[in-house]
Design a protein around this nucleic acid. Structure first.
Length: 138
RNA sequence: UGAGGCGCCUGGACGGUCGCUCCGCCGCAAGGUGGGGAGGAAAGUCCGGGCUCCACGGGUCAGGGUGGUUGUCAACGGCAACCGGCCGCGAGGCCAGGGAAAGUGCCACAGAGAACAGACCGCCUCGUGCGGGCGCCUUCGCGGGCGGCCGCGCGGUAAGGGUGAAACGGUGCGGUAAGAGCGCACCGCGGACCUGGUGACAAGUCCGGCACGGCAAACCCCACCCGGAGAAAGAUCAAAUAGGGAAGGACACGUGGCGACGACCCUCGUCCAGGGCCUUCCGGGUAGAUCGUUCGAGGCCGGGCGCGAGGUCGGUCCCAGAGAAAUGGCCGUCGCCCCUCGCGGGGAGACAGAACCCGGCUUACAGGGCGCCUCACGCC
RNA sequence: GCUGCUGUAGCUCAGUGGUAGAGCACUUCCUUGGUAAGGAAGAGGCCAAGGGUUCAAUCCCCUUCAGCAGCU
């Protein structure tokens, strides 16, 4: 944590512009159809190639998870903040759809960051495996 | 001091830092900079409107809603004041609160009787029949007469008991064989008149003599109101692909018509084979984009009007606008609550998240605060 | 965003303004050497919650809470 103040690695600023968000329904549908998944304690990560430079995030928090809109917003904001902090450590060129793993979880930011950093690359690796085995052309 | 009633407000504050979104300015751009950024319920979607599109000659019926009166309002099933009923010692609270002498229907069980009422237990001995025994009078006696008693029946009665949610007015006095609106007084009920009030209604006088049980959130009747859908409404722009129309061109020999999956027929002289391409423009329109989309029956302050809901005049302010959907993360100080005698320290922090916009209603809500009023006790 | 439907025994469902029922399941007994089937008896319900109308509400009315379905 304290090593971040070192100037040795020139880290980019931790922003989250709209270009880093999945904003189209068709992108979501492609991810559900073609993407690979990795499941953890708190969240499920669905990864799919997007043909762009950086990583993008999409949030999918359904009404079954929490009944109240306040709680759903809470989960969304934690997921979004976790992606903002870990976004440059994840493999680029992919869309990541984040889904709560189970109903009525109360994720903390630190735990979500850890899981996202672990599950993101895992899902991307599975995607490569799948595409190499099945269809070689993208 | 304690217990309570009513109305209302608030819903942590400040700072640093990393981000998000909208607007203004600077910049070719990347970006920089200044400012705004959830609620009283944003909720449920129970009502009412604005707005948009669709439908529409008028009337009637059907269907739905509302239901004291007068107001208020853009409108309402909201709100205010008043009226009536019920509850509370009281401040106050609650009420779908029109019509049951237009009609239909229902009122279980219990009970004698339940909607043109009824007579079980009782009560009565005025009337009447039978039986029993008693007293008195009369008779030698049998017998007869009179009086009153008991039982059974006819009869009278509806006060009392009992049943029920409800029993065909209530209480008291008179009256009677016992009783009964049978009579009287008061109350209730009904009718008429009159007074006050815009009105709901209230007060008063007179009369009637009780006739008219309840349920319309049962059907229904009466009065009034209501066209449908909803911003994913709707409007504008508009790729790619396919297809439609028009013009021009190229290729080709076949072209065109009727017609039909192949046949066949007609026209130019017959038969066979085959082609249907390119460019430009037009219109519809999908993905997508933009608008609708936040200045409004708006907030705040003040004046005068009204009991009040509210209305009016003047001043002032601009106060969220996303779109797989911003309003968040981390840190610090103070404040509040809980644990602890205390210092210190630790923990918790309600209900809940805008999606076209308003007016209400309803529901949820840790804690804190304000105002007015009532009752009880104590002291002066 | 809008609309509709359903909440009754452990489960699946009836029911209607007047003491709430059926089938399966459960308990006990009989039958059998034993089990199943069969027979007999029994238990189990604040009819989703809160108000209101009514003499009386599972039923009628209002509000709330769940669950399900549909339209776009």
């Amino acid at each position: 944590m304290e090593s971040e103040s070192q100037p040795s690695v020139q880290r980019p600023r931790l922003t989250l512009p709209r270009t880093a968000r999945v904003t189209h329904g068709s992108d979501f549908e492609r991810a559900w159809k073609l993407g690979s998944r990795a499941r953890g304690e708190l969240l499920v990560v669905v990864a799919n190639r997007n043909g762009l430079e950086g990583a993008r995030v999409g949030l999918s928090v359904g009404k079954k998870i929490w009944k109240r809109a306040v709680d759903r917003n809470r989960v969304r904001r934690i997921f979004r903040e976790a992606f903002r902090l870990t976004r440059h450590d994840l493999p680029g060129g992919h869309d990541y759809i984040l889904v709560p793993a189970a109903p009525k979880l109360e994720p903390t930011l630190a735990a979500t960051c850890r899981e996202l950093a672990r599950l993101g690359p895992k899902a991307v690796a599975r995607l490569r495996e799948k595409q190499a085995g099945g269809n070689p052309a993208t």
